[in-house]
Write a protein that binds this DNA or RNA. Structure first.
Lengths: 341, 341
DNA sequence: TAGGTTTGGGTAATCGATTGCATTTTAGGA
DNA sequence: TCCTAAAATGCAATCGATTACCCAAACCTA
């Protein structure tokens, strides 16, 4: 009873064919000005709106893109998505979101589903899974659906990615602690089989070496990104002799836990131990003792990811361009790491 | 060159018609077991996946729903979306997200766009705009597209909503401050033309009255939900005589700003002034002085919103059911409001 | 074995818009 | 006034899947 009006309705009303209506609506030059204007007016009057599904089916373009993230309710990811959305919306694209919860099966299913939904492209922060040749990702590449990695990438020839320089971020963060006069800098990192955590570890290590310090693996703890894990790690580190007087963590929640543990032990931050986190989560600057942290510029990451997608879509010549964008992270220096002034 | 296989491809290969293939794939009983199995096997071999656009066009169901929020990178909204997504995903729906930035034009455009994209339903945290009869929202209702409000609703007959009881939340929060022995409780709220803020104000006021306190409008500041605004409001309130010894705020960022301001003035929290915020933003519990705040259970809100949508979709009889779900908020009591033990 | 019922599957229309090709109309020139 | 090229529009196929309707073969039953 509440049917949408179609081009056929307009055609019938004006006693012309749907083809003419379609052409008029699309500003096809073969249509006379008079007819065009008549059609346009009538369409407006009849409240016509094109059925995107029909257009999509005919053209093979759905004007939807898929974005896959571990979970959406993390500030980093929701901000990246915001960036993507804001960049793509003006171009008429809609963003379909999917969560993987770091589950590779779910990730594969999401990819399948997006493919079936005929999305025009997929942007993904990938889980850390080995890819066999049968993996759905290879299907996507074969089908020539634009695919872009962000944050966590996989090294696949011909596939673009937008990431930050985790090595540099870690290096700079560690250097900052050295500059503050720290002599025994510990690192609380993440599973090194994940590229980003490995890079952060390497940056930390190299900064030590480059500045005449010895790398000592006793001062490194690898844990999952949770407050509780940070507490545990700090408890261990505080038993060392000498105690660390600086900690670089690959995660904000973890450094938060570490701070809580140290404070309860009477360790003064930053006087006794300067600390730096990673991700620049909102809470780091709201705390009574604001925490120094590495900003990953998620909004920019999202926007650039979207731009890379647009470039690929508009890339008419069939040359595959692989674009690896690496953003420079910014160290947001706050009280938690300032021993001097 | 990388065409997807269609039912026609399968039909040609098996020398049958596409209709048979379609029926076999859909378990139509008119197809013999032998044929069905043959088709299924062949489909698998040929890597067949149905084209959802074609299905959508034919059936009029896109299996997409739209979710409209002011912005996605707020914990509250991203968590609601997460709830919706997790509830709807098993049912084969995809979530398309849109942001309004609290701009009513953008909101209308988003609604239009979602409608054109033939979404099967729309869930929206509405902006605070008066609706004239021509508003797009009425189009949606006319077209019988399931529409559900969450968080911020509009009172439209026949339209369901999922909200929390803001009045009760405010009442309880204020009562809690009274129970802590506060004698002069101030309120920092939001624009009262927005229903949720008006309700919170009313709950605050009534709690005072019910407990034998006088309502004094000097102790009420209405500001936007920003840290800076909280500072300003606190500055004003601290000039009052007597100074407030308790503050109920309708916003977490605002109470954060207030805390910062008061602390810088030497006011001790909670001893000199107990404070309660609203939304239970993650940072409230991470702070060195954890902040008491009202939890709006966003995950549940999202899930219930999705459930209401599913009910409406599956509601075959044409009776319109209006469902107004009101969740009970929970006061998360933390140090910032505990004067006693 | 004629007539009736199942069973299994084909034909073609349909969803709404687009587009190559054919056809009609119009304008312009001689 | 007649002819032709250009301009404007119609026809019909197409995108991929679904489905009402029709038909043929096979199976029964008396």
């Amino acid at each position: 009873m509440n049917k949408k009006t179609t081009i056929y309705d307009i055609a019938k009303k004006l006693d012309i064919t749907a083809a003419t209506v379609s052409r008029a609506l699309n500003n096809n030059p073969k249509i006379s000005k008079a007819t065009r204007e008549l059609v346009l007016k009538t369409a407006q009057k009849m409240n016509y709106e094109p059925n995107k599904l029909a257009v999509a089916l005919k053209s093979g373009k759905s004007n939807n893109v898929g974005v896959i993230v571990p979970r959406i309710d993390r500030n980093f990811f929701s901000t990246v998505i915001r960036g993507i959305e804001e960049e793509l919306h003006p171009h008429g694209y809609h963003v379909i979101i999917c969560q993987t919860h770091n589950d590779q099966d779910l990730e594969a299913k999401n990819l399948e589903a997006l493919l079936n939904a005929q999305v025009d492209g997929i942007m993904i922060s990938a889980s850390n899974v080995a890819l066999d040749e049968n993996h759905i990702i290879h299907k996507i590449i074969q089908k020539n659906v634009p695919l872009i990695f962000f944050d966590r990438k996989k090294n696949i020839p011909g596939v673009s990615s937008v990431t930050i320089n985790d090595y540099e971020a870690a290096y700079n963060a560690t250097k900052h602690l050295i500059d503050q006069g720290c002599q025994n800098i510990a690192h609380i990192g993440g599973d090194r089989s994940i590229e980003i955590y490995d890079e952060r570890f390497s940056g930390y290590k190299q900064a030590l070496i480059d500045n005449g310090f010895e790398y000592n693996e006793d001062y490194v703890e690898l844990v999952r990104s949770k407050v509780e894990e940070g507490k545990k790690a700090a408890k261990k580190l505080m038993k060392l002799n000498p105690k660390p007087d600086g900690i670089f963590s690959s995660s904000d929640p973890v450094i938060l836990g570490a701070i809580q543990e140290m404070t309860s032990q009477g360790v003064k931050i930053p006087e006794d131990c300067a600390v730096v986190g990673f991700s620049n989560e909102p809470f780091t600057k709201f705390m009574e003792l604001p925490i120094t942290s590495v900003d990953q510029s998620p909004l920019e990451m999202g926007k650039i990811t979207a731009q890379v997608f647009l470039e690929q879509v508009n890339n008419t010549n069939n040359v595959k361009v692989e674009k690896k964008v690496v953003l420079s992270p910014e160290l947001m220096i706050r009280k938690s790491s300032l021993k001097k002034g």
